[in-house]
C-alpha cells in the first residue's frame, strides 16, 4: 500500500515539474510588452504609434519600437549633416523629410497645408507635439530599434539620426524576437 502511494507521489512530482516548465515558457513567451513595427513615415501614423507607445509605457508595459523604411525620416535630425554620401544617397536624403517636423499626412496633405493645420489644432487642443512625445518616450524607457537594412537602402547614416537615449540598430530578426515575446504586436 505504502509503495503505491510513493509511486503516485513521484508521478505527481513529475507532472508538476513538466507543468512548471511549461508555465515558465509561456510566461517568457508573453511578456507585458508591446512591439510595434513602424513602417509608415506619415505624420498621422507616427503620431498614432507614439501616443499608443506612451500610454503603454505609462501603464508599465515595456515598449519596443522597430522603425523601418519610410518611418526613418521621422528619426532624422535636421541639424546634422553627414558627409561622404554617394550621389543617390544624397538625392534620397534631399527628397525625404528631414525629421519629424517635416512629415506629411497620409490624407489631406494639400502640399503641406494639412500638416500645418493639424499642428495648429494639436496645439489648440493641448495635444503634445511629436518632439515632446519623443522626449517623454525617452524618459519612460521606450526602446527604438532602427532597421539597419533600411538605413542602407535610403542611404542614411547613423550620424544624421536623432539623439535618443534608448536607440540601437538591428535587423528583422531582432523585431521577430521582440515581437515573439510581446503580448501585443502592432504594424503601423
Amino acid at each position: 500500500m505504502e509503495n503505491t502511494n510513493e509511486v503516485t507521489l513521484q508521478m505527481l512530482q513529475k507532472q508538476v515539474d513538466v507543468l512548471t516548465k511549461k508555465v515558465g515558457k509561456l510566461e517568457k513567451n508573453r511578456k507585458d510588452q508591446l512591439s510595434i513595427a513602424v513602417v509608415s513615415g506619415d505624420l498621422d501614423k507616427v503620431l498614432a504609434a507614439m501616443v499608443i507607445s506612451l500610454a503603454a509605457a505609462a501603464m508599465d508595459t515595456q515598449v519596443k519600437l522597430f522603425f523601418s523604411f519610410w518611418s526613418l525620416s521621422a528619426l532624422r535630425d535636421p541639424k546634422k549633416h553627414p558627409k561622404g554620401k554617394d550621389f543617390i544617397s544624397k538625392m534620397f536624403g534631399m527628397m525625404l523629410p528631414t525629421g519629424k517636423d517635416k512629415l506629411s499626412l497620409s490624407n489631406m496633405n494639400m502640399g503641406g497645408m494639412g500638416p500645418m493645420m493639424i499642428k495648429m489644432l494639436m496645439k489648440k487642443q493641448n495635444v503634445m507635439s511629436l518632439g515632446e512625445m519623443f522626449k517623454q518616450a525617452g524618459e519612460l524607457g521606450v526602446e527604438i530599434t532602427i532597421c539597419e537594412m533600411s538605413m542602407g537602402l535610403m542611404g542614411f547614416k547613423a550620424e544624421e539620426m536623432i539623439d535618443y537615449p534608448h536607440l540601437r540598430y538591428a535587423g528583422a530578426a531582432t523585431f521577430v524576437a521582440d515581437a515573439g515575446e510581446s503580448a501585443m504586436q502592432l504594424f503601423i
Binding site: V51, L54, A55, A58, M59, Q125, N126, V127, M128, Q136, L140
Partner: peptide, 13 residues
C-alpha cells in the same frame, strides 16, 4: 488640465 490624451495618464504615472 493643460494636456490632452495621453498627457493626464503620463502626469499621473
Amino acid at each position: 488640465r493643460g494636456t490632452a490624451c495621453p498627457g493626464p495618464l503620463l502626469a499621473a504615472k
